[in-house]
Design a protein around this nucleic acid. Structure first.
Lengths: 162, 162
DNA sequence: AACAAGTTATTGACTTTGTCCAGAATATGT
DNA sequence: ACATATTCTGGACAAAGTCAATAACTTGTT
């Protein structure tokens, strides 16, 4: 039933319907904020096998058609999500990379107004809140202030090595 | 004179002072929003040679010490900048990747308040405005709406190939 | 001024994320 | 069922970063 609908949606947007694409859309909606690799794994669980290229291609098409949104937090691979109509934002844990949705703090589409547009034609305002989630705060009792823009998944500077 | 001051700043933050670091700080402040590679080139113009690793390490240290801010727009390498005290944001051209500073539209540090913190301890709100700059709009007369989150520097999906 | 101890820098291999290409497989309209 | 265009596959390739061992510096102390 859901697949039926997805099928329709793809057609309506002039996108050819394939097993891979159906599975990829399913993966994106069932696990929001996943990376391309994670989605590929998910898709493989659904239909046995997909090429990495098919995943990237499809994701690219879906993003173009605005059926999927791509977000790319500092220091981690691109992530993809289903929720695309509303303008919501993201809150990411600096320690574990967990990403959660946050509704727009200001209202409808107001963030779209920069104080000075510098001659640009602005079409989107992307907001990412950075912080540390509760579990990570509990498990790591270093109350020292955390670095301000540390990559989410990969540690950066070589810490005081031997 | 400026170097003198930079020297002091590094020391004050407990960072050892080396020729590479001085040059890297100089590069960051003289060309805002540059990538690590661009900074390396700039540094080489200043002191002859640096290893890529030195650039990454130093940048990492400076970011940790909050002397430099790292921003990572979708589809392009990380970029670094000097302006770190004020909470300003960025406006990036989807077509050419040009990045300009934009003062916070709302005021002081208000963006720091998400509508729901989900138990996170939030320490930064990062805002990126996406659009197309004036020169790019003039040179590319395709009035069709642009895709919503297309990488800044690298085209993504293979466009209708032969 | 010279030393010792600890930080940094260099070099080169390696990983991750993503793209290009050519040929095989599939979807779609008639 | 067919023809044609699109999509998928698989392997090579590229860019951005990271790791690890060794050599070179900084810095505080004598």
């Amino acid at each position: 039933m859901v697949d039926e609908s997805v099928d329709q949606v793809l057609r309506r947007h002039g996108v050819q319907v394939t097993a891979q694409r159906l599975a990829i859309m399913g993966a994106v909606s069932s696990r929001p904020h996943a990376t391309a690799d994670e989605l590929a794994d998910d898709v493989r669980a659904r239909i046995g096998t997909v090429s990495r290229q098919a995943v990237y291609d499809t994701l690219g098409v879906l993003v173009d058609k605005q059926l999927v949104r791509r977000i790319q937090p500092a220091g981690s691979a691109a992530r993809f999500e289903d929720r695309v109509a509303d303008n919501h934002h993201h809150l990411i844990c600096r320690t574990c990379g967990t990403t959660v949705d946050v509704d727009c703090a200001v209202g409808a589409v107001p963030c779209l107004t920069a104080s000075d547009d510098h001659g640009f034609e602005i079409d989107e305002a992307e907001v990412i809140y950075w912080g540390v989630c509760l579990p990570c705060r509990k498990s790591a009792p270093n109350s020292k202030a955390l670095p301000t823009t540390k990559p989410a998944t990969r540690p950066n500077a070589r810490s005081k090595n031997v």
